[in-house]
Design a protein around this nucleic acid. Structure first.
Lengths: 226, 226
DNA sequence: GTCTATAGCGAGATAGAC
DNA sequence: GTCTATCTCGCTATAGAC
């Protein structure tokens, strides 16, 4: 948005110490919390320093710049997100079982990382175009996992292709979390409460099962025709 | 059509002049474009002034502050959004017809207001808590429209309640547009192209029809049991 | 109504003592 | 490694000429 000074050379990278020092981790944790609470554009380095209980200058010492710090935070999330999902998608069983397991894992991850949904949404929503590759890589991986899961059930192109089911299902999962704060006032219930989270899970599972069933029916009907 | 409601009671001590001057409209248009392109936190008053071809100070003359200007822009969107949807939801026909019509209208609106999805997502994602009431009012209206549409088909509570279908369907519509820029690199197709937009529409309509059909089946089965 | 000029603040980032 | 002090910049907002 404003000053894009340094970073022309990777001069800083060599200077940056190991990111696993105690102080560096405090900073990361504070940045993590604040980013998720307020979004990248409403968090200053001063805020982070205060919450981490360290000096502002130390952030620059460890991470070089605001941008690089925020990238590190996202990176951590993306790594654990990817890990949670690859394990969920592995393993056999019927298509129903595999889908159910994958969705459970996706929802588990969201429940355990309440902040992730909003964080990613914010990134996607503004896409500085600088962060875009990182976001894209993460989404691509998830897309390919899902596509391969449904590979024998779906056409490669058209309205029934994996492309669309990917958007549809991920939207149903992620938007519940991003909308939560708004919905709290609209419904007469708290969307983040354990009961409502269970309810939402039941809904999404019902949806996935309904879709899968219908797809199987259609596939059979088509095979009979041919 | 765009008949402005008489601000009968100007008890708001707004020294702001009428917002319908030519210059004021130029400013609104520029703000609109830039907000959607970059998001509220990456747009300065200088940017807006330049694009509108007016002086920066004039913005403050007409709108008082940055915040108030941005509120005006959102307000316009919310009004036209609400209008588009209320007309779409009115009218009779079978449940299938009514749902199909509502979704078409929702997608039409998104196609004609490419920027809206990102704008709202950004607002939802950070929720300054100041803008929250405005966002909430808009969402509430849409929710109630959909709830009333399905009122005889859905239970009032639980995983099959209108609450969840509202999140599910609105997510499927809106997320396609918010994700578009990211997906452009993941797929081998442009999500914003007319062909892909048509494809997406077909997908969402298929989904809605599949859901509705299943709900009707379940309702019948339940009635038989009882 | 529309402009120029500028006040005043808070941000990211750096220098250098310890 | 960690701090204090400070520099520079862009931003919102206002004062005041025309």
């Amino acid at each position: 948005m404003t000053q894009v000074k340094q970073e022309a050379t990777n001069f800083h990278r060599s200077k940056t110490p190991v990111e696993t020092s105690a102080r560096a981790l405090q900073i990361l944790a504070a940045a993590d919390e604040l980013l998720a609470e307020r979004g990248p554009d409403h968090v200053s380095m001063r805020d982070i320093a205060e919450r981490a209980g360290v000096n502002k200058a130390l952030i620059f010492y460890y991470f070089g710049s605001r941008t690089q710090l925020f990238e590190k935070v996202l990176e951590r999330y993306y790594r654990s997100h990817a890990k949670a999902l690859t394990t969920a998608f592995s393993g056999g069983g019927s298509i129903h079982d595999r889908v159910r397991r994958a969705i459970d894992a996706y929802l588990d991850f969201m429940d355990q990382n309440h902040l992730f949904a909003r964080l990613v949404m914010q990134e996607v929503a503004h896409h500085d175009d600088g962060k875009l590759p990182q976001i894209r890589a993460n989404m691509q991986q998830l897309y390919e996992l899902m596509r391969d899961e449904f590979t024998d059930l779906l056409p490669k192109e058209g309205p029934m292709s994996a492309k669309h089911f990917f958007v549809t299902l991920s939207a149903c999962v992620i938007n519940y979390y991003t909308y939560a704060k708004v919905l709290r006032g609209v419904w007469n219930a708290d969307p983040s409460s354990p009961e409502m989270l269970r309810e939402r899970r039941a809904h999404v599972q019902w949806l996935a099962e309904t879709i899968t069933t219908r797809l199987i029916q259609d596939a059979l009907a088509h095979r009979v025709q041919a």
